[in-house]
Amino acid sequence: MAGYLARFLVALCFVGALAPASALAEQSKRLGPWEVHYNAFNSTLLRPEMAQQYNLERSSRIATLNIAVLAANEAGKPAQRVSIEGYAMNPLSMQQNLEFQEVVEGDAVYYIAQTSFTHLETLRFFITMKQGKEQHELKFSKEFWEN
């Protein structure tokens, strides 16, 4: 497990080297056989070269999501490749579809997407992950502010 977590933390560094730790606080949930690690943050925390490498926009009103799915019951918790889709909903119940891209770096696999927000807006995220007959939904909310 320690090896995978180290690789996952390296993946997190792709999105926020030099960013305050509190801005990139990782969260995780157990969903069926998976341990899903996720975070959402303002895209201005992306290093410019990393944003360019992954074709991500850096803007004070764009949020970036980072999701990794691990096999919770297996030794070493290997990364899982899943089909992933979802949307973000603002306080007025307006939905924005999320377009995820899969990133594979060594044996680490994670999914990134971006969505817009307004200052001090709380977005609710609804993410569906599928792999074979397994399907689970990750739900969480996050308040964003311009910086």
Rank of each mutant, 00 (worst) to 15 (best):
A68R: 05
Y38H: 04
E57I: 13
E26V: 12
A21C: 11
A68H: 05
G32N: 12
S60R: 13
G16Q: 03
I62M: 13
I67C: 05
N55R: 12
I84G: 08
R58F: 01
P78V: 10
N73W: 11
N42F: 04
N66F: 12
H37I: 12
A71K: 07
A40V: 03
I67E: 04
N73S: 14
Q53F: 12
L31C: 04
N55C: 15
Q27K: 13
G76Y: 07
F41D: 00
S59Y: 10
R47C: 03
E57W: 14
F41S: 00
S83D: 14
L56T: 04
L31D: 02
P78I: 08
I67T: 08
N42V: 05
S59D: 10
N55M: 10
L56N: 06
L46T: 00
P78N: 08
S43H: 03
V82I: 13
A25S: 10
A63I: 02
G32K: 11
E26A: 15
Q27Y: 14
V82C: 09
L31I: 07
S83A: 15
I84E: 04
A75H: 10
P20C: 00
Q27C: 13
T64A: 09
A75Q: 11
G76C: 05
G16A: 01
S60W: 10
L18D: 06
Q80R: 15
S59K: 08
Q27R: 15
Y38R: 03
L45N: 07
G32C: 08
R47G: 02
A72C: 05
A75I: 14
L24S: 03
R58M: 01
W34L: 01
S22W: 00
S28G: 15
I84V: 13
I84A: 09
T64M: 07
A25H: 12
R30N: 13
Y54W: 12
Y54I: 09
A71I: 03
F41Y: 07
E57N: 15
V82K: 05
A68G: 10
P33V: 07
R47E: 03
L24A: 06
I67Q: 04
A51R: 02
S60H: 12
